[in-house]
């Protein structure tokens, strides 16, 4: 009973819907035919009004959300570094290992007095920056904890290739204490850790102006550097012309040293880059070979389809077929 009544009611609904549609259709057709006859003005008004609503909603949206609210002043943001045409960042270029060698020299003689490079072991330097004997000699200059001896005491031993580069300070607190409260960050991943990467570090190292611009306030113990967020940096300018003597007799200008040390830091952050690019090249080569192969195989497989000839040979006469 219930089901039947439901069916009936749905039928009634359907008929009502159909009727409504039919009615509306009729109304629309009749009104359109009528309006073209009597009031093009009303249509124009509708078009103008809808356009005005559209434009108005856009304007309202822009009024509400349009202007960006900058939470920081440009000085707090810091000057964005200029893009430099680094050769090693190109797709098919590797690190310049002579530059890496120079950069490591700059790191060792200048940066290492405050900044650690804790994720780089001496063995990583072998073959990329130093020769094995040079790296061994460097490692042996430092002392590391040995394994416990028979009495369980830990003695010191000279470093070996498996050891990591020594840090200038035993911990962060000591580093802060020695540097007027500022912590010199570890440089192992610094190129990856800062916006702008290589460009930022190069600009920071070379961007100290001779004097801060008029009216700029520089905190006590800080130095003005436009590229550092907040413009007050606790690190004074360290690179000056002729600070290191390069063994390959490259003129050690400030920008040359900065460029070399930045390339070295990029190597420290991604030592796999050269291999990665070679692997990418291999992938491209293999993919192109496989693609070419697949094209030839496709031609081979489709040959009989492409070269076939479909001929309609009509029967000569109906009689012949029957016989």
């Amino acid at each position: 009973m219930l089901a039947r009544s439901c069916l009936r009611s749905t039928r009634a609904f359907a008929s009502a819907r159909n009727g409504a549609v039919r009615v509306s259709k009729r109304a629309a057709s009749s009104s359109s035919s009528g309006s073209t006859a009597d009031s093009p003005l009303r249509l124009n008004i509708a078009a103008v009004a809808s356009t005005a609503v559209a434009a108005g909603s856009i304007a309202w949206y822009l009024h509400l959300y349009g202007p960006n609210a900058h939470a920081m002043t440009p000085a707090e943001e810091g000057l964005h570094p200029t893009k430099y045409p680094w050769v090693h960042q190109q797709w098919f270029k590797t690190f310049d290992h002579q530059a890496l060698r120079r950069g490591f020299q700059v790191y060792r003689e200048v940066c290492a007095s405050c900044h650690s490079l804790s994720r780089v072991p001496y063995r990583a330097l072998v073959g990329t920056v130093l020769a094995a004997d040079e790296a061994k000699a460097l490692a042996e200059e430092n002392e590391y904890d040995d394994e416990p001896n028979d009495q369980g005491e830990i003695e010191k031993r000279p470093g070996k290739l498996a050891d990591y580069l020594p840090a200038p300070y035993p911990n962060d607190e000591a580093a802060r204490f020695a540097n007027n409260g500022a912590l010199p960050p570890d440089l192992s991943l610094m190129v990856k850790a800062r916006h702008g990467g290589c460009d930022y570090i190069f600009s920071l190292l070379t961007g100290y102006p001779e004097e801060a611009p008029a009216g700029a306030s520089v905190g006590e113990g800080l130095y003005f550097n436009p590229y550092f967020p907040g413009t007050g940096i606790a690190m004074a300018r360290v690179l000056y012309d002729g600070l290191v003597d390069y063994e390959d007799e490259t003129p050690a200008t400030t920008s040359q040293m900065a460029k070399d040390v930045v390339e070295f830091l990029n190597w420290a952050a991604e030592p796999e880059m050269d291999d990665r690019k070679r692997m990418g090249m291999k992938v491209l080569v293999m993919t192109s070979v496989l693609f070419a192969l697949s094209v030839w195989v496709k031609r081979y497989k489709w040959a009989y389809l492409k070269s076939r000839k479909i001929v309609y040979d009509p029967p000569k006469a109906a009689k012949n077929v029957r016989e």
């Binding site: 000085a75 000057l79 964005h80 611009p213 009216g215 436009p226």
Partner: peptide, 13 residues
């Protein structure tokens, strides 16, 4: 109360 940091930024950039 003014400083020339922004102008300096534009020039340096």
């Amino acid at each position: 109360k003014e400083d020339c940091v922004e102008e300096f930024f534009h020039l340096a950039h």
